[in-house]
């Protein structure tokens, strides 16, 4: 960085305008104070014994498993979808892009109801799954994975598509002139160049899947060990044992922060 640019930059940041700083601090407090409240209320004395209770471990294991499987599913389906939206010459791409983001704005409970109507035992597709293969998805761990993937996939698609659109297509073209097929160019040229975007999308997708509640409880129901993920366990515990709910929440918080921290180099910190 040249010294002139450095000076200019210092001058531009020399005085922080109150009109921006005040709402920014309020915004920060708004996001962080509830989390602090959770930590203050946490029953630290009994925390270890609660933490290692079977039900917490079961819910945590199920949550991590389902969120990870849902993320894999989103990667397998979502990266190609993002590529299609960014590079494919499909008609009505704008409409498609809008449709892909619908689960983002849809209340998750509505998503769960929609999944029931399609994949439920009497659903459009589900009735054939049941009749032909004897497969019934509601109230199963597979149902949890599907519900989470439905809600989380748009996060991955949007992130990857943004990276693809920002990437320079000339590298792919150069690869093509050198005789690479589109698949080879995608694999060896495009994918490595958009990797940060894919990682960012994967993290967002995983975090969203981990916290999924509405679609899960609607589509997959609630049964310990089968479909009771951490968010469901938190909600249930709130009715019977608020302290347990706080412990579960703290665990979920720590897991989320841990994952975000582990990936911060790739994701949170921008170009410095």
């Amino acid at each position: 960085m040249t010294s002139i640019a450095h000076r200019k930059r210092r001058r531009a940041t020399g005085r922080l305008p109150v009109v921006l700083v005040l709402p920014a601090v309020l915004g920060l407090a708004f996001l962080l104070v509830p989390l602090v409240g959770l930590l203050v209320r946490a029953p630290w004395g009994t925390l270890p014994s609660r933490l290692f209770s079977a039900s917490v471990g079961e819910a945590l294991r199920l949550s991590l498993l389902c969120a990870s499987l849902a993320t894999v599913l989103c990667l397998v389906l979502g990266v190609p979808l993002a590529w299609l939206l960014a590079r494919g010459d499909v008609p009505g791409r704008g409409v498609l892009r809008a449709l892909v983001t619908v689960p983002l704005v849809l209340p998750p409970v509505v998503g769960g109801v929609a999944l029931l109507f399609v994949l439920g035992r009497r659903g459009l597709v589900g009735q054939y799954l049941d009749a032909w293969f004897g497969v019934s998805l509601p109230f199963t761990t597979a149902g949890v994975v599907l519900a989470e993937a439905f809600v989380a996939m748009p996060f991955l698609v949007i992130s990857v598509e943004g990276a693809l659109r920002a990437a320079d297509p000339r590298y792919e073209e150069a690869a093509a002139t050198l005789g690479a097929s589109r698949w080879l160019a995608f694999r060896r040229v495009t994918l490595p160049s958009i990797l940060p975007g894919v990682v960012a999308g994967t993290v967002l997708c995983w975090a969203r899947a981990l916290g999924e509640f509405g679609a899960t409880i609607t589509f997959a129901g609630n049964f310990p060990g089968e479909t009771t993920t951490m968010p469901l366990a938190v909600y249930l515990a709130l009715e019977t044992d608020p302290d347990a709910a706080i412990v579960l929440s703290v665990v979920l918080l720590l897991v989320s922060v841990g994952v975000l921290a582990a990936l911060r180099d790739r994701w949170i910190s921008g170009p410095s």
Binding site: L116, G120, R121, R122, P138, F139, I217, A220, G221, N222, F223, P224, E226, T227, Y235, L236
Partner: peptide, 19 residues
């Protein structure tokens, strides 16, 4: 049971839908 619901209407809905 396959699912333990949070109120009786949620249970009823699962029956109504044939799930």
């Amino acid at each position: 049971p396959d699912t333990l619901e949070q109120d009786v209407k949620a249970v009823l809905t699962k029956v109504r839908l044939g799930e």
